[in-house]
């Protein structure tokens, strides 16, 4: 273990202690607006898992085999976002064509995802932290799952909250952010879970 980063530690850390939404605030926009309903949240969450787990290794390949050999690392922002947008578009078209039910449950969320900062964020983190291919994949997958857990937990809480009395100024985003704060604290509590020798 000495001298290397443990891929599985990263996988678990990206789900719990380093949850991309709760510690890096990435993907807040769609989180705040979509977490009103459990059903939509689940759909979007699954779509995020899928896109993160696929675009992160894809961007890794593009970065290692296209950008670095040509010395174009500084263009990575543009290239990554184009890769993500193109991939999302392709997947949407494929699903629409071959599976109507899947499109109804997942496909309609895909366009929302291109503008989700968490997706680009994961790719950028992956580059800065110099991950290997496997680690990138696990990091993307873990971050996706972490985002999914956070949004369905929030949607569940918000549904219970519908009948609660909330001060008028706190309704909507205000109370959501406060709950997110508590969730962030709770998720930090996971940090004792994996032991490092």
């Amino acid at each position: 273990m000495n001298g290397s980063i443990m891929p599985f530690a990263i996988f678990f850390a990206s789900i719990f202690t380093g949850n991309i939404l709760l510690t890096n605030y990435l993907g807040m926009c769609s989180f705040l607006s979509v977490s009103k309903e459990l059903k939509t949240s689940t759909g979007l969450g699954v779509a995020v898992i899928f896109v993160m787990a696929t675009t992160t290794p894809l961007n890794w390949l593009v970065y290692q085999y296209l950008l670095i050999p040509f010395g174009l690392e500084y263009l990575r922002f543009i290239v990554f976002i184009i890769v993500i947008a193109a991939f999302v578009q392709l997947t949407e078209m494929t699903i629409e064509r071959y599976s109507e039910p899947l499109y109804q449950s997942l496909g309609i969320f895909l366009p929302l995802i291109t503008v989700n900062c968490a997706i680009l964020g994961v790719s950028l983190f992956m580059v800065i932290r110099e991950y290997t291919f496997l680690t990138s994949f696990l990091f993307g997958l873990g971050s996706g799952i972490g985002w999914f857990i956070a949004i369905i937990a929030m949607a569940g809480i918000r549904q219970k909250l519908k009948n609660a009395k909330v001060p008028p100024g706190l309704e909507g985003p205000g109370i959501t952010l406060i709950i997110a704060g508590f969730m962030a604290m709770a998720f930090m509590g996971f940090s004792g879970m994996i032991a490092i020798s």
Binding site: G174, G181, M188
Partner: peptide
């Protein structure tokens, strides 16, 4: 991280 959520929420509350 939780601090950011709380401060933003309180700001929104006050303003609203």
């Amino acid at each position: 991280p939780p601090g950011g959520f709380f401060v933003l929420a309180i700001f929104i509350w006050i303003i609203r």
